[in-house]
Design a protein around this nucleic acid. Structure first.
Lengths: 163, 163
DNA sequence: CAAAATTAGTTCTATATAGTACTATTTTAA
DNA sequence: TTAAAATAGTACTATATAGAACTAATTTTG
């Protein structure tokens, strides 16, 4: 069977990104953009977490987060500080301003959902989400496998250049 | 009901992008990357099309395509030339090299699909695709509406600065 | 406990992506 | 048939994104 799932996901992501951006602006939310909203969405559920956790929960690469979090800190949305319990980790905490944006964000989010599901039943919506959950799980497992096999191959200089 | 469809789509897109990139490399395909593959996928179905058509079929903004097509032309994947029948349009045609990449791409694509659908039935896969089709359609209609209403508002200087 | 391995993040660099504003061409309408 | 509107694409700019290589901190292991 021929499926176009990957293609559809990519395309939906592009259009969705532009539409969501416009809805945010139209609702007077200019404190953050769609990509930042994706990160905030995770932080509203739980903050004071290290970057590796954010990476897993957002699906973004660690170095992508380094750049974005720096930007968001400069905008006053969050604060980064070292974890006293583990000097390697940086904990990301939301500011009060960022917390106050959750309500408005969720309203726009609901508007987006209404758009998504025009002409579909609630059962379809729930079904779509559960199928996507499964696909995401599959991909995450696969990426973890790929990461391991890459490390196996490049085992030449691990930690050798340290101090 | 609370859905996380937009969030899931965004996250899947990220992970998928990284995994697909790795599979391409692992299969020795270094002539193009995942984002370019998305454009090639559309062109393999029909080329010698204007950029606005590509924009619609890929979900990418026109100016995004300007940049990517320039890059891909420099890599020898395609050729751009003016449409004699309409001087505004640029037609994009694949090179022979690009055509030869379709087979290898489809094999990697099938591998990705197998990953996507681990633990799901073919019926689930077909269902997911059809739900995504509907969501994409909804979003495209919405974006077209948004575009129109924006034009209404900013109707101040249209074509005034011409010649 | 010291060396090796692992883990956490960052830097550097290249590409992808889109908003706004623009030019050129074609179509529409008075 | 010419002025206005619409359409097609590009330039400029800012942000997002990730791969590779790196430093620093912690954990594991002999």
């Amino acid at each position: 069977m021929v499926t176009r799932t990957g293609f559809l996901i990519t395309q939906i992501k592009q259009v969705q990104g532009r539409v969501f951006q416009r809805l945010l602006e139209r609702c007077g939310i200019d404190a953050f953009n769609g990509a930042q909203g994706h990160i905030l969405y995770v932080l509203w559920q739980e903050d004071k977490v290290p970057i590796a956790t954010l990476s897993r929960k957002t699906g973004l690469a660690k170095n992508t987060l380094t750049a974005m979090l720096a930007h968001m800190e400069a905008q006053g949305l969050l604060v980064r500080k070292a974890n006293p319990a583990d000097g390697r980790q940086v904990l990301v905490a939301l500011t009060e301003e960022a917390r106050e944006l959750q309500g408005p964000y969720e309203r726009v989010s609901e508007e987006m959902n209404a758009l998504f599901y025009q002409g579909l039943t609630q059962a379809d919506a729930a079904l779509l989400d559960s199928l996507l959950d499964k696909v995401l799980l599959n991909l995450e497992e696969c990426e973890a496998r790929l990461k391991k096999s890459t490390e196996k191959r490049g085992e030449s200089d691990h930690g050798k250049s340290n101090r």
